Simulated scan of single mutants.
Amino acid sequence: MENFVNLTAFPALLFDSLDQHDHGFSTVVARLSYDLDIKSGELVFCEDQGELVEQDSYFAEQGRSSVRFESDLVPYKPRMDVAINATAWAPEDKPVKSFTAGVQVGDFTRLIKINGPREWRKMIATWQLSESQPITSLDLCYEYAAGGFYSSEGEKIIASPANSVGMGWYPPEVLKNLKVQRLTAPQIEWPTQPIQKIDQQSSPAGFGFFGRGWQGRIELAGRYDEKWRKDRHPLLPQDFNFAYWNGAHPLMQFPLPEPLKSVPVTLRYFISSREIENQQIHLQVPVESLFVFITTEKGAGVAKDMVLDTLVIDLNERKVHCSYRTVISELMEPVMTELRFIKAEQRQQQLDLAARLNSHSAEPQFVPLPPSLLAKLQQVKTNG
């Protein structure tokens, strides 16, 4: 492993990995945290940047509750995860049987339907949903989406392959042992995919981190069969897909943002009207100028932009957490990797300094620039 120097105020780590073809690479990951002003949408760096999330953390019991933060120790993500930890609030905080809340990330809109408490009621030949009771607010977590986990006296475990922490999903093998006429039903669903059957298998509705072993994600991990045990263990199966490392709900995974731009986010009905009258929150999440500068065994210097691939909006704590990542192939033969950061208000100053110093071969000083800023410098030279 090459030497790693963190020249920033953010928690960061370099670690080694192998891909599904046994090619080696290093990953640098850093986590940036902001305090969120919910009224203005302003983001300010937290004084205490905390630490990397090195293992999944849960809202309650591990394995039986939703993941609050998924581990940052991920080799690579091909898309940007957006996760929202929040409470959904009815319009004007007035009790209603159901309401729709939503988020817009760039040009993408995602809506979710919140229902008040409701039941499955046994009829002669089927189970039917009751009307919802009025509700004012509900925590936005997969515990209220369709799913479930059951264990029998014989210790047989039956879990929803789509959402093992959910509610209101009852397969035939569970129903046959229940001598009741009413059962709790899911309260969170997609407006376009309403829950209609008591044993319906569907992707759970939610904006939080998606279970590693759930349908829709676990398939990407590849086949760990007898052939793998015989020929590959403990290496990755060759049909492993790095999209497995994307931890947000599949509907909350988006194209990676461009360097030096921002990610516009609008949240609706995830805040009480007592705090914001129209119950909307608008924010622009900046893509910071965070980069690595790599010195190779042959003495070459290579800069790479870090990529924003995980955005967690924690409205409960009024925080926004951004994880950045980049990979370094072992073929580069790196011996030293430095993590560097240029504040937005200092970018032009760094560009000017680099233009003055880096163009003279006799100049002993050198100003590393990430490719995103270097492109701006080259553009200035071309235009002027």
Rank of each mutant, 00 (worst) to 15 (best):
W214Y: 04
V28P: 00
G213L: 14
L183K: 07
R182M: 10
G211F: 02
L373C: 05
G106H: 06
P186Q: 13
T296L: 10
P368H: 08
E153F: 02
L315C: 07
D314R: 08
S65V: 01
H233G: 04
S26N: 09
S66Q: 10
A344T: 06
I135R: 04
V263E: 12
L256G: 03
G102Q: 02
G50T: 08
A146Q: 12
R110W: 03
R340M: 15
P334V: 09
E2P: 14
S132Q: 12
A375P: 02
L308N: 06
E2H: 06
I157C: 08
Q49N: 05
T310I: 02
E258K: 11
Q128V: 08
P95M: 09
S98Y: 00
F15V: 02
A221P: 02
G168I: 03
T136S: 12
L236I: 04
V320Q: 05
P264M: 08
P264H: 05
Q350N: 10
R232H: 07
Q279H: 06
L111K: 03
V327E: 09
E92M: 13
E143P: 02
F69K: 03
F99K: 00
N115S: 09
A125S: 15
L175E: 10
E275G: 00
Y244R: 03
S372Y: 10
L339W: 00
I294V: 15
T184N: 11
H360M: 11
T87N: 10
Q200F: 01
E119T: 11
V380H: 08
Y142C: 07
S372F: 13
V96I: 10
H360T: 08
F108N: 05
G222Y: 02
M252H: 05
A205N: 05
Y144V: 00
V28D: 03
